[in-house]
Design a protein around this nucleic acid. Sequence first.
DNA 1: CAATAATGTAAAGCTTACTTGACATTACAC
DNA 2: GTGTAATGTCAAGTAAGCTTTACATTATTG
Lengths: 68, 68
Amino acid sequence: MKNRIKDLRKSKKMTQEELAIKVGVSRQSIIAIESGKYNPSLELAYNISKAFDSIIEDVFILEERGEE
Amino acid sequence: MKNRIKDLRKSKKMTQEELAIKVGVSRQSIIAIESGKYNPSLELAYNISKAFDSIIEDVFILEERGEE
DNA sequence: CAATAATGTAAAGCTTACTTGACATTACAC
DNA sequence: GTGTAATGTCAAGTAAGCTTTACATTATTG
């Protein structure tokens, strides 16, 4: 899952560790999410977006699941 | 985590099973999320909100983590 | 260049989201 | 009242998010 975390983080001059502490997870989790390696929980996604004063849909690039 | 899924689902006359199939998870998962038993993944939260033609923030009631 | 901060990577373990299956209860149609 | 659809609950297992530790690489700063 793609996202704009890295850019947003840099534009706020925030390190991975600072963001991790701010949203209450480990730095590893930030790295994994930044690199699209996994699908964060809703709560974490929300906290991250709030760390950037944004809404989730603005930080994460989500694609709708096809209907069946 | 609180949410409006049950109400939205009823207003769309959708069963738990229909919603589960539509968003690609088991009915158990829908039950657990509806009852706030756990924190869904961002992707699932997104698919659920799209099933109701809404955005995440409109379906799930999220609370920001306190700063430290 | 040297020192230190920031980022990247990898592995092992824990926790919890999510599945599957089975059955019990409630609601609604016939 | 009987049959069937929808919901609720419980339990055991799998998958994946997340943690912790450790170290290597790439900035950045003096």
